[in-house]
Structure formats: structure tokens, C-alpha cells
């Protein structure tokens, strides 16, 4: 079957590069670059891609490799021979990494959910034309894009609020981004006023209009905002350095810093007898922090690329 499709006569599919070049030639008018230039481009691109892929590959492989292979390779491997999940079993059998993963998941879920809700509510209340005070409030929000109060006053505020060592210190300060309010509001403004008026005539309240009309019609942008915030809550590092003192409240990024960047020996902080080599454990922690990002990456890439362009073009 496979060979028959390969040799099936049809549109000239041999040399796909050449046909595309021919097509492009008709568009651009210029001859396609010669073989040397194309080869050079290929090499540059290959190196760039390898520089990105190789570290991830090494990290995943080392986390899966067994002790003998790691010892033989001197620490890191590019491909595991007898892949096993011992390192993951060790870090997820309770102890500091398990706890930190739960903390990070919790902060990410609660933070991104809450922030998309608050942003949507604020954006909606600012999107109704002629409502009381919407211009000053909008300016108030916009103005925050121009400044950042600075680390010391932020720290003192969290301290005065009694939020030191509280998860809310990781969630609340970054809950509302002016940029996101603007983006969501722009989408709400594009919902035809006729639909809203029709709902009003049918007796819908503001909350119903928001929940039944605005949010369903702006699902895509709200999903993007939620994803964006999830990634930044998951990756947030410095706020935890500032505000979280007790190690049992550490999010994953702090664990990553301590055990993977600063190379603190992790064996003592895991329950039971830890067998896997240090490198496997470190790389397993790294993988745990990578995986959620990689899972949402396809969505991120599609929407973010669009969003950044919209932001650049529309202002």
C-alpha cells in the first residue's frame, strides 16, 4: 500500500522544494537562491533548532535514565537506555517537591481563574458607553501601565496587609493587568449593541448580559487571558522570594532555584531512601516545571502570536 501511493502518478510532486520555489518565483519574480545559500540557511536553522531542542532532550533523558548510564556518562545523557520513572517516584513520594507542585498548581489555578474573572468584570463595567465614571476609571487603569511603584513599597504594603507568608501575596498583586483589561474591553466593545439592547428589553440584568452574551461571545480572548495568567503565575518566582518565608509554602520555582540552580543536595528533603542519582532528581524537578508550559504551548503559540500582533498593530 505504502509503496503504491509513493509511486502513484499524479500532480508533479517530486522535488517538493522545487515546485514551491517555482510557485514563489511566480509570486516574487526573482530566481530562487542557489544551492549554497539554501544549504547555509539550512545549517543556521538546524543549529538554532538544536540549541533549543538539545537542552530539553538532555533534561528529559537524564530524568529517565538509570543510575549506571548516568554514572558512565558522567552526569547527563542525551538518550536514556533503560528509561525508568524512579526519579519521579522519588520526588512525588511526598516531601518538598510534592508539596511545592501542589502549591504551584493551586496558586496557578486560583490565580488565573480569579484574575480572568476580575479582569472580565472590570472590562465589562468599562465597556458600557456613557456609564457613570467610566472615563476616569479607565484612565486610572491605563495609567498603571506607565509606572511601577518599586520593590520596597510593594514589599511594605504586603507586610502591612499581613500577607507575608500567605499564598494571597503570590496571587493578588498581579491579579489585574491594565493591558488585559484594555484587550478584553476592546472585544466587549465589538459585540453589537443591538444584541445587548435586545437582552435588556427581555429583562436581562447586567450580570446576565455579561454571563450570557459578552463572555460566550468573547470566549477566545478570555481563554487567552486565562492561559497567559496561568503561565505567569506558574513561572512567578521573585514574589515568592520576597513574600514566602516558610519552606513548606514554597512554590515549584523556589524549589527549582534551591535544588536545581543552587545545587543543594535534595536527598535529605525527600522521604524514604532515595536511590536515583542527584542529576536524575534535579532533571525530574525541571521536567515537572516544564510540562504544564509544554502542554499549553500549542494554544499559546497560536493565540499569543496573534495577540502580540494585534497589540502591535492596534496599539
Amino acid at each position: 500500500m505504502v509503496t503504491s501511493t509513493k509511486h502513484r502518478p499524479g500532480p508533479p510532486k517530486l522535488l517538493p522544494g522545487a515546485t514551491r520555489a517555482a510557485r514563489l518565483r511566480t509570486i516574487n519574480g526573482a530566481a530562487p537562491p542557489n544551492l549554497a545559500v539554501r544549504g547555509l540557511k539550512g545549517i543556521v536553522l538546524l543549529i538554532a533548532a538544536a540549541l533549543v531542542v538539545a537542552p530539553f532532550l538532555a533534561v528529559i533523558s537524564t530524568s529517565l535514565a538509570d543510575q549506571e548510564q548516568i554514572a558512565a556518562a558522567g552526569g547527563y545523557v542525551l538518550w536514556p537506555q533503560n528509561p525508568n520513572l524512579d526519579a519521579y517516584r522519588a520526588i512525588f513520594s511526598g516531601g518538598v517537591v510534592t508539596r511545592a507542585t501542589l502549591v504551584s498548581v493551586g496558586v496557578t489555578v486560583v490565580g488565573s481563574g480569579l484574575s480572568v474573572l476580575v479582569v472580565a468584570l472590570l472590562a465589562y463595567s468599562l465597556s458600557r458607553p456613557g456609564s457613570w465614571g467610566h472615563r476616569p476609571i479607565l484612565l486610572l487603569v491605563l495609567f498603571t501601565m506607565l509606572f511601577n511603584a518599586g520593590m520596597i513599597p510593594n514589599y511594605l504594603l504586603i507586610k502591612q496587609l499581613g500577607l507575608i507568608d500567605s499564598y494571597w501575596a503570590l496571587i493578588l498583586p498581579t491579579l489585574v493587568s491594565a493591558f488585559q483589561v484594555i484587550i478584553v474591553r476592546a472585544f466587549f466593545l465589538e459585540v453589537p449593541q443591538e444584541i445587548v439592547d435586545a437582552a435588556r428589553i427581555d429583562g436581562a440584568s447586567e450580570l446576565q448580559i455579561l454571563a450570557r452574551i459578552m463572555m460566550p461571545l468573547s470566549k477566545a480572548v478570555l481563554a487567552v487571558v486565562a492561559l497567559f495568567n496561568a503561565v505567569s503565575y506558574w513561572s512567578a518566582f521573585f514574589n515568592a522570594v520576597l513574600y514566602i518565608n516558610s519552606t513548606d509554602k514554597w512554590p515549584l520555582q523556589l524549589v527549582l532555584r534551591t535544588y536545581v540552580v543552587d545545587n543543594t543536595a535534595i536527598g535529605a528533603d525527600l522521604p524514604g531512601e532515595v536511590v536515583p542519582p542527584q542529576q536524575s532528581l534535579q532533571m525530574a524537578i525541571l521536567v515537572v516545571s516544564l510540562v504544564p508550559i509544554c502542554l499549553v504551548y500549542p494554544f499559546l503559540q497560536r493565540h499569543f502570536a496573534k495577540g502580540i500582533v494585534i497589540g502591535a498593530v492596534k496599539g
Partner: peptide
């Protein structure tokens, strides 16, 4: 409407 926007404004 203003009540809806309040949490965001407070934050």
C-alpha cells in the same frame, strides 16, 4: 455596573 467593576478597581 460599577459594583461589577469594583473588585478590579480595588485591586
Amino acid at each position: 455596573l460599577l459594583l461589577l467593576g469594583l473588585p478590579g478597581v480595588v485591586v
